[in-house]
Amino acid sequence: MIEARNLTRRYGPTVAVDALSFDVRPGSVTGFLGPNGSGKSTTMRLILGLDRPDTGQVRVGGRRYRELRWPLREVGALLEARAFHPGRSARSHLAALAASNAIPRARVDEVLDMVGLTGAAGRRAGKFSLGMGQRLGVAAALLGDPAVLLLDEPVNGLDPEGVRWIRDLLKSLAAQGRTVFVSSHLISEMALTAERLVVIGQGRLLADTTVAELSAGSASLEDAFFRLTSAAVEYQGSTAKEATS
């Protein structure tokens, strides 16, 4: 369970997240949608306590992130940017994280196997392809077998097999009763993966709903998304701008 209440975060003149409140419930995959620059990654960082909100607060499993007793065993996160040292092997990166939360060493090989990186585990992670780096990030998120998972654009860079693998993985994690919160640009992918949706634009909440509810009355989820966000898109190509105006 993730509970965000009235989260606001400014960077200079930019209001990245604007009085945002929503709940993410266990047992289903919740998609986090919004145009470029709408504040999805910022919201993820606020949930993890990496950035501080100017106002408001967010709780994970009833606690602030900072108060978690074994953070990696309670929350697993895959962030937008790479979060590993290029000179360190995947196995050492995961072993270091495991040690910080007293996670048994055997779990490292288990998650490497789950993401298909066993063969590359001893190589310097700096040489990894985009998709392999993404798989390492997923392995780190799964390391503590957490009840809450946050993933910022997990399919970014994955091959078709990898996209399907992530989709099935997220669904099965949710089916086990976990809270799964996943941002994506790929609306068609979200239509296949998520049951619930949180949609934001310019940092504000536009919809907190189900996929079924949002797509009802539109030709597709994509059409419904464009209708919802048309007023809140900052960065778009010029032909698209004319089409919506």
């Binding site: 065993r73 360190r88 050492s92 939360n101 077998d145 009840a147 009763g177 976990r178």
Partner: peptide, 30 residues
């Protein structure tokens, strides 16, 4: 489910000993 998730988490809390182990692995693995 929330209850099973809770029971997976051992008692106690991470502290300097765990974090130092992490930093030692990071230091020696470069």
């Amino acid at each position: 489910m929330t209850t099973t998730a809770e029971t997976r988490v051992p008692s106690g809390r991470y502290g300097l000993a765990q974090v130092a182990r992490m930093e030692w692995i990071k230091l020696r693995s470069l």
